[in-house]
Design a protein around this nucleic acid. Structure first.
Lengths: 260, 260
DNA sequence: TAGTGGTCTAGACCACATA
DNA sequence: ATGTGGTCTAGACCACTAG
């Protein structure tokens, strides 16, 4: 199965693949393997947290050497789609593992260790997508989307007010109750209960004065400076699946980032 | 040269290195090679932009296979310390190449392409390090540091006000004049004229109300919300070499980030 | 044509986890 | 003992650059 233009095992070291006619662009074998594995992940052949076949098994399946499979998995591992565990095998990455806990939560306290935050869900309902929301989520204006308003608390102190929009088709049955019952990050719930895994996000950060709604929720004065985080999250295939606008107090916390 | 605990070319596939006594921790050969190359970069054996020896030559020098050198260089390339160019060779990365131009400049316009920004240097002088500055830069309180105040302009509009502190010992002779004469990024000047290359930076972002100084420089009202970016930059060996506090207007621009 | 990095293979052995 | 990923080698050929 799943062996499109992969080379037919010639035995020499040449690349007998990715060549159909004349002006075909050169695509390395391991990139093709990578693509096939991503497609399998996308269609849910293996669920988050599950063990995928061994390198040797994939090598046989795809009719390439183990080293070529290895290079493909190396990249998928670097992109946080897969997780390697020596002696055990290779697993589909998940938002549950503590290692990935703060990958999508960049707000941390100025002093001390990042403490676990509590969610308070202020709203959760089905609405019609505005033109803006529809454009970002690649939907049509008026399509059903789920709107969630969440207050993130660090202890007793309100820290972030998030407005979140999700495609209704992917998140049927999402309610404030289910959100409240779940323990762990929202993305962990999304992947385990709705089969949608967030693998990348683009963010835009700005400073913005608190409006009335934000001021009340975050317990600051109207006009107080807040950090606005606009996030679009993507699943496999660069498909956008979440729009999130977060307003954050930054007197005792900050958004951390590393430039490399 | 430079062949410490590297294996003495046994010919089999085993790892004859990194083993001195009994409870020695295992360190892969390619990690050792990587370390040696970084040390060479640190001591300036090859300057930014220069060609380093070929993989084959390094393999002979270090008495390992080309594949092992390759893996070391792969990682250094992924960390932006080296740049590979097929057919040409491997080069020391530099802040001049347009590819790396926006690696340390995350402020971009909401609409349209990132336009080149102009610098206006408001101040540049030698001062004594305060306790805070000394701690961050790993100096002693009272040590000489260079203080630079810069206004970053997008066209005629002031965008970012940066206060920058640099270790005096590393940047002797840095003046507003030399800063003004140089075309290109500050980091490009630092690496070409002072031999200090920034390879990583940690940032903390907050929202903050404009004070009198910032309001005047950025042409906003006092109290207007600004994005505060606190940056500590590092050179080889995790040595801090720059503290930067930037205040940024974000009505028409934003700080972009990608979570992966 | 020669030299560089890029890909691919085959096989060996090491480190780690589990039974 | 077995199976997994992790490292290392040796050698071949491909893609790209430049003299």
């Amino acid at each position: 199965m799943a062996s499109q233009s992969i080379r037919p095992a010639t035995g020499d070291g040449s690349n007998g693949a990715a060549e159909s006619a004349s002006s075909a662009v050169f695509t390395p074998l391991y990139k093709q393997i990578k693509r096939l594995v991503i497609d399998d992940l996308d269609r849910g052949a293996w669920k988050p947290g599950e063990l995928i076949p061994s390198e040797q098994e994939l090598a046989v399946r795809f009719q390439v050497s183990q080293g070529t499979v290895r290079k493909a998995i190396d990249e998928l591992s670097a992109e946080n789609l897969l997780t390697r565990r020596q002696g055990k095998g290779t697993f589909v990455a998940t938002h549950d593992e503590p290692r990935a806990q703060f990958r999508f939560l960049r707000i941390v306290p100025d002093e001390g260790e990042p403490a676990p935050a509590q969610n308070r869900f202020l709203d959760c309902r089905r609405v019609r997508a505005t033109a803006d929301v529809a454009r970002v989520l690649d939907l049509k204006t008026g399509d059903t989307v789920i709107f969630v308003r969440r207050l993130l608390m660090f202890g007793a102190a309100p820290l972030v007010l998030d407005d979140i929009w999700l495609p209704g088709a992917l998140f049927k049955g999402l309610t404030a109750e289910r959100l409240g019952q779940h323990h762990g990050s929202m993305y962990a719930l999304f992947e385990s209960q709705f089969g949608t895994r967030m693998i990348r996000a683009d963010e835009r950060l700005r400073a913005r004065a608190a409006n009335a709604v934000a001021a009340k929720a975050l317990q600051v004065e109207i006009g107080a400076p807040l950090l606005l985080v606009e996030r679009v999250s993507f699943t496999y295939g660069e498909r956008p699946v979440e729009l999130r606008l977060g307003l954050c107090r930054t007197e005792q916390h900050h958004y951390r980032n590393t430039l490399t």
